[in-house]
Design a binder for these strands. Structure first.
Length: 402
DNA sequence: TAGACTACTCGACTGGCGCG
DNA sequence: CGCGCCAGTCGAGTAGTCTA
């Protein structure tokens, strides 16, 4: 759209400043950053591929803030990550609730001082493939990617007339708004589900008409660990049996059910590894390493082999509906069960002793049907969200038309 | 031999050194 | 003093050994 009637500039020739943070002697050390304080001190977790995220925030005091020189954000500044994960962008506009914000040593500020460039447009342009490709070429370092201020100043930008800039911003904003709404909807649905389940399971027994009985996990299921997946058997991307590893939990489509795995094996491989398959409707999750803090649970949809870093719960259908047990397990924070050693670990004994209050099978069916529908809606909304993001990027690239 | 546990790799991230 | 760079640390995941 804009290629034919726009000008190409270097960032440094366009009255756009690239400002590094203060990394001198006044740079705050780790114990000077607190959960509360005067000035938000950004870390790389705050500047993500989806813009600012403020789940974990660090602050410095007013005194420290005043001592430091460069690196304070002004409204409408753009933040670019330059070390480790390079190329993440975030926009410090009126939606950010912190009045005083500083960048850390792994970021720069991009400040637009050109009246002929709309800053909203500049931000959208910087997030396009056109700029991403340049950043990929400019970043260096094998162990750790880096971008220097000098190279950022040499980024090429395409600037159409201000009217066209505003048109592009308006079009892309429709997608941005839809993406934001969809994300909020998914978050709210997730928290509401957790709340309802928690309330249900903690109802006062005396006032409840539901017939709850306290049972241990040992009474309603059996528990078994997975098998060592020797390297020599890894590599097949097709086969008779999927072999699930922790990483597979994160594959698209595996949000609740293990539908895809990176590696597959055949029966012969399993025999050689002395491994056995786990049945459909078994519940799997991480048993070792920091990944168990992520509290991800998944359901098997077919006979599946399981890695030894995963533990598998096989529901006893006489007492317990697998969907109900899956939902129950989602309410448990395994951080509380983990052994307090250098590496988090949960063992079978602790799991077997876990106590739950569960209703009869008929009621379990009814409850789990409600949650199943709820999960389906959340998974569908997640697919819509992914699609919106793809559409937005493709549209942006078409509008920038490189 | 199943389950528990340890040791390790790899890559991301952070703090701050040191050269110009 | 500023900026580029490097080394240490941490987090996530993996593969193998130990032991009851």
């Amino acid at each position: 759209m804009i290629k034919s009637n726009c000008n190409v500039f270097l960032l440094k020739d366009s009255a756009i400043k690239v400002i590094d943070g203060d990394r001198g002697s006044k740079y705050p050390c780790a114990d000077e950053r607190k959960a509360k304080g005067y000035c938000l001190f950004l870390n790389t977790k705050n500047v993500t591929k989806n813009g600012f995220i403020f789940d974990e925030v660090n602050f410095i005091s007013k005194e420290q803030h005043n001592k430091m020189l460069k690196g304070q954000l002004q409204k409408n500044d753009i933040v670019l990550s330059t070390r480790g994960t390079v190329g993440h962008l975030a926009y410090y506009n009126e939606n950010v609730p912190y009045p005083f914000v500083r960048i850390n040593s792994g970021m720069v500020i991009i400040r637009n001082e050109n009246e002929k460039i709309n800053t909203d447009f500049l931000f959208k342009l910087l997030t396009s493939e056109y700029i991403k490709n340049q950043i990929d070429k400019l970043s260096f370092g094998s162990a750790q990617k880096q971008l220097t201020v000098k190279s950022i100043k040499n980024l090429k930008i395409l600037i159409p007339s201000i009217q066209i800039q505003i048109k592009i911003v308006n079009i892309i904003s429709i997608w941005d708004n839809a993406i934001e709404l969809c994300s909020k909807l998914i978050d709210n649905m997730d928290s509401y589900k957790t709340y309802i389940l928690f309330e249900l399971l903690n109802m006062n027994l005396n006032s409840s008409t539901l017939d709850f009985k306290e049972k241990s996990l040992a009474e309603i299921s059996s528990i078994k660990g997975g098998y060592v997946f020797k390297e020599e058997f890894q590599g097949k991307t097709k086969g008779e049996i999927p072999f699930v590893k922790i990483n597979d939990f994160n594959l698209p489509g595996n949000e609740k059910f293990i539908k895809n795995t990176k590696y597959w094996v055949n029966k012969d491989d399993l025999d050689k590894m002395k491994a056995k398959v786990f049945k459909k409707n078994s519940i799997v999750f991480a048993k070792v390493g920091a990944s168990l803090y992520l509290n991800k649970r998944r359901l098997l949809v077919r006979d599946t082999a399981v890695d030894n870093n995963i533990i598998c719960i096989i529901p006893n259908e006489e007492f317990c509906n697998y969907e109900f047990l899956y939902q129950l397990l989602l309410t448990i924070d395994f951080a509380n069960l983990s052994q307090k050693s250098s590496i988090p670990l949960i063992n079978k004994r602790d799991l077997l002793n876990l106590k739950f209050r569960i209703p009869n099978l008929d009621m379990q069916d009814k409850i789990s049907n409600i949650f199943k529908k709820y999960d389906e809606i959340i998974i569908n909304k997640t697919k819509v969200l992914q699609l919106l993001k793809i559409q937005k990027n493709s549209l942006l690239n078409k509008l920038i038309a490189v």
